[in-house]
Amino acid sequence: MSETVSNVKTLVIDEQEVSALAGQTILDVARENDIYIPTLCHLEGLSNVGACRLCLVEIKGGNKLLPACVTTVFEGMEVSTHTERLQKHRRMILELLFAERNHICSVCVANGHCELQALAQDQGVTHISLPYRNPELTVDASLAQFTVDHNRCILCTRCVRVCAEIEGAHVWDVMGRGINSIVITDLHDNWGSSSCTRCGKCVQVCPTGALFDKSKVGSDHPKYPDFLPYLNLMREAQ
């Protein structure tokens, strides 16, 4: 019995007392309790990389900000998810993303279905104070079904992870580094001539208009990433 008891942790998130299982992340516990923490690279069903830094939270007693998606809970933890400091960084991170590549929402296939766009609205970003970088990037429409538009890519690597972890093909990866990083298929080959299985999972998990389905017109491109937890569940059962 003592073991089960020690497995349950109690903690405080935004002044709300919650309980959690040992090993659970702050994000999991927050979502179970309807406490909203913004995320972008995280997607339920994929491994966590802690890269977008939007889910950073403050933990009482520590000066460092920690990503809620990978930080596990401990007994007596006191988490703040929406301090002024965190909000300031979140807005800056979104600004950095908008200024990094060419996100032209009005003509984007994902307009109205884009997680980046929604987050900007959610976090109150009404303009970008940073200078736009205006990089020259390509659009690869060589595959019959789907297109990759690097202008809209935020390098969340969901496509890379879903292809490697769920589809098992690992056709996507990231090449280059720093500000010059881009997602590639195979040896930076055209998507159309790559070893892609055409399963379309990457398109469904892409949070922006970087990967989209050609068969849809205009900005009617809703994404359906919810298949992932189900898929994982079915696999575990086998």
Partner: peptide, 25 residues
């Protein structure tokens, strides 16, 4: 070159994109 990366990747069973990602990193 691509031929070399392809050969090494196949030999070590590393996905092509991963190998290319490493080379360019």
């Amino acid at each position: 070159d691509d031929e070399a990366i392809r050969f090494v990747a196949r030999s070590l069973r590393v996905p092509l994109s991963q190998a290319y990602g490493v080379v360019t990193f």
